[in-house]
């Protein structure tokens, strides 16, 4: 798959040894969120708010923490991180089918 240029942290001049924490420490949690894996996708989940019953199965099984919640309700997909594995669509109950996988031609 094509690796796109990243306009985020790794593009800027990297700091030298005098200005980074010692020992390879990462002093802030969750910095991986700044790394976008969305461009790994070949397929893309399309979530339908009309059909969704908020059973959370997509949320619980998403390996990339990419099902977005707001006030306890599913509101969509985080395409910055979603890798398009299709688990969300697969676990969505057959009677609901609120998520459909479509080719990602971005």
């Amino acid at each position: 798959m094509a690796v796109k240029e990243k306009p985020v942290a790794q593009e800027v001049q990297k700091p030298g040894w005098k200005s980074i924490p010692i020992g390879g420490l990462i002093l802030r949690g969750g910095t991986a969120a700044e790394f976008h894996t969305g461009d790994w996708r070949t397929e893309k989940p399309i979530w339908d708010g009309e059909k969704c019953t908020n059973c959370y199965l997509c949320w619980v099984y998403c390996p990339d923490t990419s099902i977005l919640l707001e006030d306890g309700k599913v509101v969509g997909v985080d395409y910055d991180h979603c890798k398009g594995c299709g688990i969300c669509a697969a676990v969505c109950p057959p009677k609901v089918r609120a998520i459909e996988m479509v080719p990602d031609r971005d």
């Binding site: 980074i20 010692i22 020992g23 002093l27």
Partner: peptide, 28 residues
């Protein structure tokens, strides 16, 4: 200067350190 048991300031110790930073850490 840091500890795993600081609930307010969680840290990651011992990450995978590749070509872009490993050398800097060895220099330190």
């Amino acid at each position: 200067h840091y500890t795993l048991l600081d609930a307010e300031n969680p840290i990651t110790v011992g990450p995978l350190d590749l070509q872009d930073f490993y050398f800097e850490h060895r220099r330190q």
